[in-house]
Design a binder for these strands. Structure first.
Lengths: 173, 173
DNA sequence: AACTCTTCTGAGCATAACGCTCAATTGAGC
DNA sequence: GCTCAATTGAGCGTTATGCTCAGAAGAGTT
């Protein structure tokens, strides 16, 4: 289980909303001394729960060890209602409409397999959901990144590169 | 096409690396006046290319209009090599090992369908890749979010809630 | 009840960053 | 050569930062 208390969690929430928020503002918003936020923030950073400095939160540190991907087949004219239903389930981390087999693709997180089962039940209870197919994410080999894309854009536009930076590969578009 | 020049792109890259980086540091790193970074930063923020203040970059603003999901079946003993190959393709935004049908799940982005085709060809050229299945992401209904999860953790631990904040729903685990 | 240990608090301090303005310079396009 | 937008460097007052320190508050223990 995570070692985060309510204050840590609130701090993370505030930082997700605005990663560049100032320490003093955060302190005021959380109704706590500036010093406290400063030390909490430092701790979260050092523990790498706050990755990159506020961009993303380490879900495992929060105790969400199970991540799964799910495709959903839905009654098309109920699509909006299904989306609204998904939105109400905290375990749903994202949801996209897709082409091909299945109509919606989702990512979900849970503390354990029981939590996952519970989340899946919630999903299947949504009116308009016909069928679901779920796979477990066993390991993240490449975490979300957009920097490679940016680096390639940089090459395309001919931006000078600072020393030491690796050149982005050219494969694929 | 995007209206971002090399400096904008470099600024975004630096902010992805460290969303809380100081303006002055960024200016020094990019070898440009502090004032310049300040105005560029403000512009990126206002144009909402920098979402949330540094958390994520708007891919569409960069000209990447096509997003797709791909499952890959691979020769298991070549898994590491496949991952390494994927890592070298900028279009691959993330990659996870999964259970069930297909062995790897990826998200990829491209400027258009030609770019997507090119990326897919790059993937299929990787030694160890047996078969791929790709679906287009037509629309993002729920973008990546972790705040709901955090809010539920807050409720679980009994954190007091500031005024006006909506209570996180209770459905699912 | 006293004790310890940790955390939070509030204050203070020197340094640095911030947001802003302004005049001068640069560079591209006409 | 001209215009226009962007960049630069300097300067300004205000604010945030990182730091220290002593005291208060709580939880858990003896």
């Amino acid at each position: 289980m995570s070692t985060l208390d309510a204050l840590d969690t609130k701090l993370l929430l505030a930082l997700i909303e605005d990663p560049r928020a100032q320490i003093a503002d955060l302190a005021e918003r959380l109704g706590v001394a500036r010093n406290t936020v400063q030390s909490r923030f430092r701790r979260l950073q050092r523990a790498e729960i706050l990755r990159g400095g506020g961009r993303e939160v380490d879900l495992e540190a929060l105790g969400y060890d199970v991540v799964a991907f799910m495709t959903l087949e839905v009654v098309h004219r109920e699509l909006d209602a299904v989306i609204a239903g998904l939105r109400r389930i905290p375990s749903i981390l994202e949801a996209h409409e897709i082409s091909g087999r299945g109509d919606i693709w989702c990512r979900l997180a849970a503390t354990d397999t029981h939590g996952l089962q519970s989340a899946l039940r919630s999903v299947l209870r949504i009116r308009g959901v016909i069928r679901s197919e779920t796979v477990l994410a066993l390991h993240t080999h490449i975490g979300y990144r957009a920097d490679q894309l940016l680096r390639r854009s940089l090459d395309a536009v001919g931006g000078a590169r600072s020393e030491g930076e690796p050149k982005a590969p050219e494969e694929g578009q």
